[in-house]
Structure formats: C-alpha cells, structure tokens
Simulated scan of single mutants.
Amino acid sequence: MPAPTATPTPTPTPARTHTRTPARAGAAPRTVRLGVHGSTHLASRLVAAAGHAPGSVEYVPYEVTEPFAPLRAGSMDIMIVKYDPLEPDLAVSEPVGFDGRAVLVGSHHPLAGRASVSVEEVAEYGGFRCPGEFPGHVWDLVVPPRTPLGRPIRRIHAMTTLTAMAELLRSTYAIHLSFQSLDAVVPPDVKVVPVHDLPPSPVAFAWLRGGKPPEHVRRFVADSERAARR
C-alpha cells in the first residue's frame, strides 16, 4: 500500500500594500488657467494681491480679434476683461483691479516724450478700428468715438495683432488708446504715455455660465475680489 502523499504547505501570499500615488498624496495644487492679452504684468499683480503663489496660475494668451474663443473652447478657466463684455454666455466677477489709460505711439511721435497727455491731443491722430469679434460697446470705451469735448477720434487703422500694431506705430503717426499695463510688453521703440483725462478701466474675471468653475478657480476669484475691496 503506497505511503500517503504529504499535503504541501501553502505558501503565504504577501500582504497587499496600499501605497498612494504621487498624484493623490503629494501632488501640487491645481493651477488656474487665466486668459490674458498682451502683458502678464497686470495679471501677476492681481495674483499677488489675492495672496496666491506665482506658480498657482498659468497664463493663456488670447487675441483681441477672437477674445472669447479660447474660453469657449475650454483652454482657459477664466480670463481678464476690461469693462463688462455683456456676452450672454459669460459671467463676470466684481472688479478686482483697475488699469490706467494710456496712448501707444512710436518713439518718433510728437507725443512720445510727454509725461502725460490729454485725450483731446490724442484726437489729432488716427486710431484703430474695432477688431474682429471684439464687442463694439467695449471698444467704444477703449477707443471712444469722440473726446469729452466732442472731437472725433478717427478710427481708421485695422487692429489685428500686437506685433502688427507695433509695426504701424513705429512707421507712422498712428496712435492707439489703450492701457498702462501694456508698458511691460511693447518693444522699446513704442512708448506708452499716460492719458490723464480718461478714467482707469475696471478689471474683472469672466468665465462660462454653463458650468460651475472648479473649486480652486472659485477660491482664486473670491480671494481677488476680497483683496480689491480692502
């Protein structure tokens, strides 16, 4: 009679160790994708005023010819707007800052060496037409059709990109009524001269009405609004 076969001793199965992945345990905070046009100088000041770290925001550029296209395409969470665009699908925050008014001219221009100018003087020179899909009522605030004294501001040049605008300014006597924050982005041969008799523009954030922004974006907007109220 054959000897009974010994039952093999089961090999213990190693206990499963539940390690957290870096994405859940030590992940960096999510960044706010903030749409900006031209300079990030104004945006970085708003970020600092809100008490957020510079790395907490990613700047996404947009052009004035299609200012809301990147927001509607989902490539940014919020964007900086000057004045209220009154777009039905956009919500707008409280003002989070202000941007002083200025005129952009070539370095050869008669107004280039001035410490500040009046919009009445600016009306001597040709400005830019409303570009692409930019809201017309906002452009009328940026580049008024008339000065406070009733002088027409001739809007005769096509506005496309900052590069094309700079090229026209450096080669002609054209002017562009704009904002002081562009001083940080224009080339050296384009001067940004403050306009002392136009009020500064309110600055706000806009986002799509369709869905609730992520919590980290809502926190950034709320912190910016709170900082502006101080």
Rank of each mutant, 00 (worst) to 15 (best):
P2Q: 09
A3Y: 08
T5L: 09
A6M: 06
P8G: 05
P8Q: 05
T11W: 07
P12S: 07
T13W: 02
A15K: 14
P22S: 11
A28F: 12
R30I: 01
T31W: 04
T31I: 01
V32M: 02
V32I: 03
R33C: 04
R33P: 08
L34V: 00
G35V: 04
G35E: 04
G35T: 02
H37D: 00
G38H: 00
G38I: 02
H41T: 04
H41P: 04
R45F: 07
L46I: 05
V47K: 01
V47S: 00
H52E: 11
V57Y: 00
Y62Q: 01
V64S: 15
P67Y: 10
L71A: 02
R72K: 07
R72M: 09
G74A: 15
S75E: 13
M79K: 11
V81I: 05
Y83Q: 06
Y83H: 14
D84Y: 08
P85Q: 07
D89K: 01
A91S: 09
V92K: 03
V92Q: 00
V92I: 03
V92W: 02
S93M: 12
V96Y: 11
V96A: 09
G97Y: 04
F98G: 04
A102W: 01
V105Y: 05
G106R: 07
H108Y: 11
H108F: 11
H109W: 10
P110V: 09
L111M: 14
R114D: 15
S118R: 03
E120D: 10
E121A: 15
V122H: 14
V122L: 15
A123S: 15
E124N: 11
Y125Q: 15
G127A: 15
G127S: 15
F128D: 02
R129S: 10
C130D: 07
F134C: 01
P135R: 02
H137I: 03
V138Q: 03
V138N: 07
R146T: 14
G150F: 10
G150H: 04
I153N: 07
I153Y: 05
R154T: 09
R155C: 14
A158G: 06
T160Q: 01
T160A: 03
L162M: 13
A166I: 10
E167H: 09
R170F: 09
S171D: 11
S171R: 11
T172V: 08
Y173D: 14
Y173L: 12
A174K: 03
I175P: 09
Q180A: 12
L182P: 06
L182W: 14
D183P: 08
D183I: 09
A184K: 02
A184F: 01
P188T: 10
V192S: 01
V195I: 15
V195K: 14
L198C: 08
P200T: 06
S201L: 02
P202N: 00
A204I: 03
A204T: 03
R209N: 12
G210N: 08
P213M: 10
P214I: 12
E215F: 13
E215R: 14
V217E: 06
F220T: 03
S224G: 03
A228S: 12
R229A: 09
R229K: 11
